[in-house]
C-alpha cells in the first residue's frame, strides 16, 4: 500500500446512457438539421452577397432566390434539358458500369487476364478523358454515341478498379471454406467473391455516379447541342445569368439525387455491411 497521492477514475452513466431513446432522437434531429442547414447557409451567403454586391456582382450573377423564382423554371425547355441530361448520363453510367464490372471481375479472379490487360488499362486510365473526345467523334460520329461513350469511359475506369481490388483482397479463409465444399468457379464467385467485394464495389459506384454527372455536363459544354450543359453555356453567351446559374443548380441537384439513389441501392443490396463503424467523433 502506498501513501502517494491518489486519483479516482469514475465510470458512470452520462445523459446518453440514462435516456437512450431521447438521445437517439436528438442525435437524429441534429443530423437532419445539419444536413438541411449546411446547404441553406451556403445559399444564404450567396443570396446576401449578390444582393449587397459583396464579392459577387449582382448584374452578372443571379441569387438563389432569383433562380428559384425565375420564370424559366416553368418553361418546358428547362425540364427537357434535365431529361436529356439524365438519360444521357444513365446510359453512359450503365454501359461503363457493366464493362467495368466484367473486366474488374475477370481481372480480379484470373491472374492471366490481369497480366494481359493491366498495363494497357492503366495506361489508358491515365489519359485525360477529355482528350479522347476528338477520337470518339471520329470513331462514333457526331450524334449521341460519342457523348454517351465519354461518360461510359470515365465510369468504366472507376468501376473497374473498385471491382478488381476488393475481389483480389477477399481473405483466404473465405475462399478455402467454399473450396473445401468443392465449390465450382461459378459458385465461388456467386457465393463468396462477389458478396465479399460488393460493399467496396458500391463505394466505387458512388464515386462513379458523381463523376458521371460531372462528365455529362462537361461533354454538353464542349459539344453544345442540348441538355443542362448547353443551357448553362447559352445563358453565358446570351448574357442571361439566370440560365447559367439555374443550370449549375440543376446539375448539383442531379448529382445529389443520383449519388443518393446509388447509395440506397447499395444499402439494400448489402444489408450485412455496416456503413458506419465510427462512434461519431474521433
Amino acid at each position: 500500500m502506498s501513501d502517494s497521492p491518489q486519483v479516482v477514475l469514475r465510470r458512470t452513466a452520462s445523459d446518453a446512457e440514462k435516456n437512450p431513446g431521447a438521445t437517439a432522437r436528438r442525435r437524429r434531429m441534429i443530423e437532419v438539421g445539419l444536413a438541411i442547414l449546411g446547404p441553406l447557409v451556403f445559399l444564404g451567403l450567396w443570396e446576401v452577397c449578390v444582393r449587397n454586391d459583396w464579392w459577387l456582382d449582382g448584374r452578372l450573377i443571379s441569387s438563389p432566390w432569383e433562380i428559384i423564382t425565375s420564370e424559366r423554371l416553368r418553361e418546358a425547355e428547362v425540364w427537357e434539358a434535365v431529361w436529356v441530361t439524365t438519360v444521357r448520363m444513365l446510359k453512359g453510367f450503365v454501359i461503363g458500369t457493366v464493362l467495368g464490372l466484367i473486366l474488374g471481375v475477370a481481372m480480379g479472379i484470373n491472374r492471366y487476364a490481369r497480366a494481359a490487360l493491366n498495363s494497357t488499362l492503366t495506361a489508358l486510365y491515365t489519359v485525360p478523358k477529355i482528350a479522347l473526345l476528338p477520337v470518339y467523334l471520329l470513331l462514333f460520329g457526331f450524334d449521341e454515341a460519342p457523348r454517351v461513350y465519354m461518360i461510359a469511359t470515365v465510369v468504366f475506369f472507376f468501376v473497374w478498379i473498385y471491382t478488381m481490388a476488393p475481389i483480389m483482397a477477399v481473405p483466404m479463409g473465405y475462399r478455402e471454406a467454399a473450396a473445401s465444399f468443392n465449390a465450382t468457379g461459378w459458385q465461388m464467385f456467386r457465393h463468396v467473391l462477389w458478396p465479399a467485394a460488393l460493399p467496396q464495389i458500391f463505394v466505387g459506384l458512388r464515386v462513379s455516379a458523381g463523376v458521371a454527372v460531372l462528365m455529362v455536363i462537361a461533354v454538353e459544354l464542349i459539344l453544345p447541342r442540348d441538355g443542362i450543359g448547353y443551357f448553362v453555356n447559352r445563358g453565358r453567351e446570351l448574357g442571361l445569368p439566370d440560365n447559367t446559374f439555374l443550370g449549375v443548380l440543376l446539375a448539383a441537384l442531379l448529382g445529389i439525387v443520383f449519388v443518393g439513389v446509388v447509395r440506397q441501392i447499395g444499402r439494400w443490396m448489402t444489408p450485412w455491411a455496416p456503413e458506419d463503424n465510427s462512434p461519431g467523433q474521433i
Binding site: S4, V7, V8, L9, R11, T12, A13, A16, E17, K18
Partner: peptide
Amino acid sequence: RIVAGLLRPSKGDIELYAEASSETPV
C-alpha cells in the same frame, strides 16, 4: 469495457483508484 472506459454504464458506477503520478493507469 466499462472498467476500461470504452463504454459507459447505463446505471451504477465504477471507481478506479490510481496513483496521481500514473501516466496510463489502465
